[in-house]
Every structure is written in C-alpha cells, then in structure tokens.
Amino acid sequence: MKKSLFYMLILLSIVFALTGCLPKTAGQEPPVPVVSFKAYLPENTPDDATIYIIGNYCNWDFDSAATSTVKTDDEEKKYAEFELQVAEFPLEYKYTVGPDWKYVEKDADGNEIDDRKIDSAPEEVVIDTVAKWAAIPIPPSEEPTIVNIKAFLPENTPDDATIYIIGNYCDWEFGGAKTSDVKTDDEGKKYAEFELQVAEFPLEYKYTVGPDWAYEEVKADGSNLDGNRKIDSAPEECS
C-alpha cells in the first residue's frame, strides 16, 4: 500500500511538471495586468506639456497618476503613451494636460464628458482621442500674456460709470477684476478699454456696469447671454 501511494505521488508530480499545473506557492498573487494606452492630443497641446492619465487605478490622485511627455508621429499628430498596472476592473479614467482638474479633457464643444471606462483587461493597445482641453497651463518660466480689449457700450451707459470685465483670469472675483472709465470716440460712441494679464487660456469673461452681477451685460432683447464670452488663445490684436 505504501509503495502504491509513493508511485502515485511520483506520477502526479510528473503530470504537474509536464502540464505546468504545479500548485501555486502559498501567498503568491497572480500578475497584475498591464494596460497600454495611446492618446491622440489636440493640436494646441504645448510640445513641452505633461499629460496625465488620472483614474481609479490611482484613487484619482494626481501625485500617483501616470504621466507622459507629448510625442509626435510621422503625420505630425501629437500623442501621449502610458502603461498602467491595473489591479481591478472596470478601469475608469480621464486625461488632463496638467496636475489639476481645471486642465481636464472636454468634448469638441467644450462640454464635460463622462469618465472613460474599460470593463476588462484589453488584449491590445487602447487608442483614445482627446478632443479639447478645458484650459492649458502656462509654464512658470513664461510671462503672462497681455490681452488688450476694447468694448463698445450701450448709448445709455452713464458717462461716469465704471465698467468691469469679470472672468476666470481673476477667479470671477470683482475685487480682482480690471475696470475702465467710460470713454467716447470721434464718432460719439462710448467704449471701455482693458489690459489683462492672462496666465492661461481659454479666457472666459463678461462685462458689468458695476461691481455686482445685477449689472451684467445682456442681449439687445434683455435676455441673458448664451454663456460667457470666450477667447481660446492669445489674440494678435485687440478684441
């Protein structure tokens, strides 16, 4: 009986060795899947930018997120590449052009998008396309962009009014907003002039005729504007 048991153990060992089915060592974990990504980027992505892929694989923490430099293929298309070790699925993620949600990707119209999602480990490289960035950071080494703006005003604007340009350049705070006196050109048209230091684009803004939203600009029929005024990149001339 002992010999039969001995020979059976030998036979099982040979079978395991030949089939690769040897028992797993106690405490040994299966390998974590590695997922490769290639993300095509908007044309206005700075060549020296750092692209982040932020998601649940790193607990949505920018400090732990994988990054990529901006690369260019043979067709001059900009892209970023990543390799992630994903411990569990589904994987949810987004791309940003800097370590902050204000630089997150948007759809082509500038609207928010849902988190990207991969339900299980893919067999091939994941190909994504980023349509647009919410904003693009300017490196600290670069000076803010000076934007000169001239705004023509309604005829009923009081001559002694103070015109405000309120926007994301001042975090929408009236205390930090630029102002202008009411001026009149050679044709009798009233206008205001501003010189803004803009650290990042797009620049979004509105005009008010006082330091309160009760005095903000409206359409000719008195209805609200369709969103904010917007300048996507540094203009060459006054707006």
Rank of each mutant, 00 (worst) to 15 (best):
D115I: 00
D115V: 04
D115M: 05
D115Y: 03
D115K: 02
R116E: 06
R116Y: 10
K117M: 02
K117P: 12
K117H: 08
I118H: 11
D119R: 14
D119Y: 12
D119S: 15
D119A: 13
A121D: 08
P122R: 09
E123Q: 15
E124A: 12
E124Q: 10
V126F: 08
V126S: 06
I127E: 04
I127K: 15
I127Y: 12
I127V: 13
I127T: 13
D128C: 13
D128Q: 14
T129H: 05
T129Q: 01
T129F: 05
V130Y: 09
V130C: 04
V130F: 06
V130A: 06
A131Y: 06
A131G: 01
A131F: 07
K132C: 01
W133M: 00
W133V: 05
W133T: 03
A134V: 04
A134L: 07
A134E: 08
A135M: 06
I136R: 00
P137Y: 07
I138D: 14
P139M: 05
P139R: 14
P139Y: 06
P140W: 10
S141Q: 13
S141I: 13
E142P: 12
E143S: 05
E143P: 02
E143M: 07
E143R: 12
E143A: 02
P144E: 03
T145E: 13
T145I: 11
T145A: 15
I146S: 11
I146A: 11
N148W: 11
N148V: 10
I149N: 07
I149E: 13
I149S: 05
K150A: 04
K150N: 04
K150T: 03
A151Q: 03
F152Y: 15
F152K: 02
L153S: 03
L153M: 07
L153V: 08
P154R: 01
P154G: 00
E155P: 00
E155G: 04
E155I: 02
N156H: 11
T157F: 03
T157I: 10
T157H: 09
P158T: 05
P158C: 02
P158Y: 08
D159C: 07
D160A: 00
D160P: 02
T162G: 11
